[in-house]
């Protein structure tokens, strides 16, 4: 049976993880390669690495890092941050990334989704959408959530799917950082609306929140960052809880 996926997300700046990760016996808490490998050993199903500075200058550093991650990590991983063209993507694929996530650039130039899907296949393209509820509408935001756009979550997600995105990574900015749980209603609506997998992001504060994202939000995968990094919830503990609660999970 196909299982629900648990995905730790690591923010990268200048080739280093931004937030320290609270692992016992870790040699270098800022080394994304070691942290990624550790999460893989613990049973993470996939990893996401976001280049949060993503300037032209450090692009090469990031590609080198992607190569090292691919060398040492034996599970699939997505890379994102600052991808704005086909030319940005080819070196990441060549370095061993399994998927790329695109966000602001896709809003600016939706054709980018078609072009990436055509060049590398839909399975390679994750459309990340940051949205916030304004006047009862889920409004898409870009640039790390700072710029509101005229796009609405559901129509944009559907357009992304039609243009060839292989997955939707939905972050509710209203929930992100609150630790109060994922945005269940829009998740279940995305599930109804789409034929491609949906990754829930934003709001994870405890293991019950993951259960809700899967059982009520019907998410195919759930992503979290600080909850895992600070050691507040370990992946084995989360997975064993989900399995006991009847969620199909890889253990």
């Amino acid at each position: 049976m196909l299982t629900k996926r648990i995905i730790p997300c690591l923010d990268i700046k200048d080739g280093r993880t931004v937030k320290g990760v609270n692992f016992v016996n870790i040699r270098d808490a800022g080394d994304p390669v070691e942290l990624g490998a550790r999460y893989a050993e613990q049973g993470a199903d996939e990893l996401v690495f976001l280049d949060i500075t993503a300037t032209t200058d450090n692009r090469k550093t990031f590609v080198e890092l992607v190569r090292e991650i691919a060398r040492h990590v034996n599970i699939p991983f997505t890379v994102g941050g600052g991808i704005s063209s086909l030319a940005d993507v080819a070196p990441l694929l060549e370095a061993g990334a399994d998927k790329v996530s695109i966000n602001s650039a896709a809003v600016r130039t939706p054709q980018l989704i078609d072009d990436l899907a055509k060049a590398f296949g839909s399975q390679f393209v994750v459309l990340a959408i940051d949205a916030r509820k304004i006047n009862n509408q889920w409004i898409v935001h870009t640039h790390g959530g700072s710029n509101p756009t005229n796009k609405k979550l559901f129509s944009w997600a559907r357009e992304g799917q039609n243009r060839g995105a292989g997955e939707i990574l939905f972050t509710s900015m209203d929930h992100d950082g609150t630790r109060q749980g994922f945005a269940i209603d829009p998740l279940s609506k995305l599930h109804e609306l789409l034929q491609i997998p949906v990754i829930a992001s934003g709001g994870a504060g405890n293991k019950e929140h993951f259960l809700h994202a899967f059982a009520l939000g019907k998410a195919d995968a759930a992503l979290a960052a600080s909850l895992f990094h600070f050691g507040e919830l370990s992946i084995p503990e989360l997975k064993s809880y989900l399995k006991t609660s009847g969620v199909s999970i890889r253990t």
Binding site: T3, Q123, H191, R250
Partner: peptide, 14 residues
């Protein structure tokens, strides 16, 4: 798909 299964089949399966 027979129901609401997603395609591609993406993820870990036994």
């Amino acid at each position: 798909p027979q129901g609401h299964e997603k395609v591609p089949h993406m993820g870990w399966n036994s």
